[in-house]
Simulated scan of single mutants.
Amino acid sequence: MDSLASCFVQHGAPSQSFKLYSLQRRPSTSLLRRSVPIVRCAAAHASTAAKATSVDVVNGSGNGGGGGFDFETYLSAKAKAVHDALDVALRDLRCPASLSASMRYSVLAGGKRLRPALAIAACELAGGPAAAATPVACAVEMIHTASLIHDDMPCMDDDALRRGRPSNHVAFGEPTALLAGDALLALAFEHVARGSAAAGVPADRALRAVMELGSAAGVGGVAAGQVADMEAEGDPSVGLAALEYIHEHKTARLVEAAAVSGAIVGGAGDAEAERVRRYAHFLGLLVQVVDDVLDVTGTSEQLGKTAGKDAAAGKATYPRLLGLEGAHAYAGELVAKAEAELDGFDAAGAAPLRHLARFMAYRQH
């Protein structure tokens, strides 16, 4: 444990201040010795699109973390814009009504829309307009939703609850759910191609975004991670290296692709895109660490899905391998590493990404 973290994040109720404790740093890490601002998160609901969180920076420093940025409004606005765009993209599909209904059921079920917001924020950081990244943002959400539909099926995690209501296969049957996930995956790439052209994104940038998303969805990401995750179930010998492989692919890679694709269509240069990639890599791992912790500490009502499923399935998780305190500590390290990658960018432009990292760390569902 002493090799893990630079700070310890103590989770509590959404309205409390979070304390961060200094721990010994891993000797091999390149993380700069820096303080992570203490933040307070208050849960709030966006209208129809997503649940947002208000972030009040209590102890900001000169790293762009100061108080002038209204993250709640930003995230809520992006979530609603993406939700509306997804609604339009899923209208009048030329397919059986049951397939269309199944696709819309899961995509429009809500959620925080963090991956789409990340794509848009990265595009804006690179100097591009939000409209340029909206097709990418929608595609990321389609890919993510497809993975959730498949993940919930009896042949995978066999979960009957998703986002507080019956999983897709429970509502529509397994064959339709399987095909809805497949259709969403295909539609994602069609949508990037058509939408990017309509938004005036140069073809070479759109192609690079498609390549990035394709890698994240397939053998370079979600598919590989899911297989490794299933093969590791019930294996007590699974260690940290195997767990990192699973979550770098199953979770972090799509988060990374969302950010990098957004930056690319926004006009980022190679060096900028790689820094965004590193930021998002740490962010993606953070998502999984917090998910693992909440699976232990949260309730099904809070999470909108069945709590305690990982332990019941004998899965390797960060709390199981590190303990809850160790998992919290690792989350703190990942927040600091992600924020460190933003230090060279314009502070105002990086503010959404900085606050997004803190939101990921301190969320309660």
Rank of each mutant, 00 (worst) to 15 (best):
D92Q: 13
V39M: 09
G128M: 00
N168Q: 10
T145M: 08
V296T: 15
V293W: 09
H83A: 14
L187D: 00
H144T: 06
A133W: 02
A44H: 00
L334G: 03
Q288E: 14
A217I: 03
Y279P: 04
A217H: 05
D204N: 12
C41V: 02
G349H: 04
F8T: 08
A242R: 11
M211E: 15
G173P: 15
A258N: 04
L254K: 01
L118Q: 07
G284I: 06
R320V: 00
A131R: 08
F345W: 11
A361W: 03
A232L: 01
M156E: 15
L118N: 03
S61I: 02
E190Q: 14
V255Q: 03
N168I: 04
A85C: 11
F345I: 13
A357V: 14
K112A: 12
G64Q: 01
S147Y: 09
P129C: 08
A241F: 01
V57M: 14
D235H: 01
Q226E: 10
A126R: 01
A186H: 06
A50L: 05
F345L: 13
G164L: 07
L99H: 11
A340I: 04
D291S: 12
D159M: 12
H144Y: 07
P202C: 08
D70G: 06
A132Y: 00
A347Y: 04
V55E: 05
A50M: 04
V227T: 06
K337I: 00
G308R: 05
A49S: 15
R104D: 08
P14K: 02
S167G: 13
L324P: 09
H328Y: 14
Y21S: 02
P116Y: 07
L294I: 13
L4H: 00
E248G: 14
G164P: 04
V57Y: 10
A216N: 01
G164E: 10
P135R: 05
A209V: 06
Q10F: 05
T299S: 15
S15K: 03
A193Y: 10
A203I: 01
A216M: 03
